[in-house]
Computed example of a mutant assay.
Amino acid sequence: MTPASPEVSRSAALGRGQATAAATSSTGAPMPSTPASLGGLGLDYRISPNDLFDVEVFGVPDLKRTVRVNASGLVSLPMLGPLAVIGLTAEEAEARIAKAYAEKLLQDPQVSVFIKEFSAQQVTLEGAVRSPGIYTYTGQLTLLQAIARAGGRGDLADFSNIMVFRRADSGVATVGRKYDGNEIQSGVIDDPILQANDVIVVKRSPGRVVLRDSIISDVIGIFNPFSYLGR
């Protein structure tokens, strides 16, 4: 018996996927459980280059793949070719992949994405923190966690004035957003999730800077006998 060609096998698989999806939609039967997206890291995690994740299409086992995001933020999937997923959450990636498969004759595809490996990312801490610099992290990092990694706020910090600068989606401009660290600590607002290459600047308090300079000036005056000659 002559074996079916790859094209015929793929068509048969797609037909099974269409039939299964249609039956599920019409009967309302629950979908089988799939691994939780992000492995418990949080729904706000956004896919980055070198991340590794599983993609499954319910009812079409031939489309199951484990893929790694390349440097351009693309993954290659059967029937779809390169698909951009960088900057998406797992849920958003599921929706994008499902839409792409729906355009390739699959009826109501049910897609699951499970991120297995997280690439190392970097954020920059500047301003009134104790140890400014570039910090590497994997997975998910919040604003307060990043400041803690930099040794916490400095003595001159205005913790109500924290700026987070991020490259816009267009990749051309940088946009900044102000956060109040006191409100985050008190639970008034959520601790925001950072993205790769964010720059965090904890502003200095003008009043504290003036007070510091005044104290330093007084101390110098006490120990410098020549400071009184001009008075």
Rank of each mutant, 00 (worst) to 15 (best):
residue 2 T to F: 13
residue 3 P to W: 01
residue 4 A to Y: 10
residue 8 V to K: 15
residue 8 V to P: 02
residue 8 V to W: 05
residue 8 V to I: 15
residue 8 V to M: 13
residue 9 S to A: 14
residue 11 S to D: 14
residue 13 A to Q: 12
residue 13 A to F: 01
residue 19 A to W: 11
residue 23 A to K: 05
residue 25 S to E: 10
residue 25 S to I: 06
residue 26 S to Q: 14
residue 26 S to M: 11
residue 26 S to W: 03
residue 32 P to C: 10
residue 33 S to E: 12
residue 34 T to D: 07
residue 37 S to I: 01
residue 38 L to D: 13
residue 39 G to I: 08
residue 39 G to F: 09
residue 40 G to I: 07
residue 45 Y to C: 00
residue 47 I to C: 05
residue 49 P to M: 08
residue 51 D to A: 06
residue 53 F to P: 02
residue 54 D to E: 14
residue 55 V to C: 06
residue 55 V to M: 06
residue 56 E to C: 04
residue 58 F to K: 00
residue 59 G to R: 03
residue 59 G to E: 03
residue 61 P to I: 04
residue 66 T to E: 09
residue 67 V to E: 00
residue 70 N to Y: 07
residue 71 A to F: 01
residue 72 S to N: 12
residue 72 S to M: 09
residue 73 G to T: 04
residue 73 G to D: 08
residue 74 L to S: 00
residue 75 V to Y: 03
residue 75 V to K: 00
residue 75 V to M: 04
residue 76 S to F: 10
residue 76 S to I: 11
residue 78 P to E: 10
residue 78 P to S: 11
residue 79 M to A: 09
residue 84 A to M: 05
residue 85 V to W: 00
residue 86 I to R: 15
residue 87 G to C: 08
residue 88 L to D: 02
residue 89 T to E: 04
residue 90 A to I: 01
residue 93 A to C: 11
residue 94 E to F: 00
residue 95 A to H: 10
residue 97 I to W: 03
residue 97 I to H: 07
residue 103 E to Y: 02
residue 104 K to F: 01
residue 104 K to V: 01
residue 105 L to C: 00
residue 107 Q to C: 01
residue 107 Q to G: 00
residue 107 Q to F: 15
residue 111 V to K: 01
residue 116 K to L: 14
residue 117 E to A: 13
residue 118 F to I: 06
residue 121 Q to A: 03
residue 121 Q to Y: 02
residue 122 Q to D: 05
residue 125 L to D: 04
residue 127 G to I: 04
residue 131 S to Y: 12
residue 132 P to V: 11
residue 133 G to D: 08
residue 133 G to R: 06
residue 135 Y to H: 09
residue 136 T to V: 12
residue 136 T to D: 03
residue 139 G to N: 06
residue 141 L to V: 07
residue 145 Q to R: 11
residue 147 I to M: 07
residue 148 A to M: 12
residue 149 R to T: 03
residue 150 A to S: 13
residue 153 R to L: 12
residue 153 R to P: 09
residue 155 D to Y: 07
residue 156 L to W: 05
residue 163 M to T: 13
residue 164 V to I: 14
residue 164 V to P: 09
residue 166 R to E: 04
residue 167 R to E: 11
residue 168 A to P: 04
residue 168 A to S: 15
residue 169 D to H: 08
residue 178 K to Y: 05
residue 179 Y to Q: 04
residue 180 D to T: 08
residue 183 E to Y: 07
residue 183 E to L: 15
residue 186 S to N: 12
residue 187 G to S: 09
residue 187 G to K: 10
residue 191 D to A: 05
residue 195 Q to D: 02
residue 201 V to N: 11
residue 202 V to G: 02
residue 205 S to G: 05
residue 205 S to T: 10
residue 207 G to N: 13
residue 211 L to V: 10
residue 215 I to A: 14
residue 217 S to P: 00
residue 220 I to P: 00
residue 220 I to Y: 06
residue 223 F to M: 04
residue 224 N to K: 05
residue 224 N to M: 11
residue 224 N to H: 02
residue 225 P to Y: 09
residue 227 S to N: 10
residue 230 G to R: 13
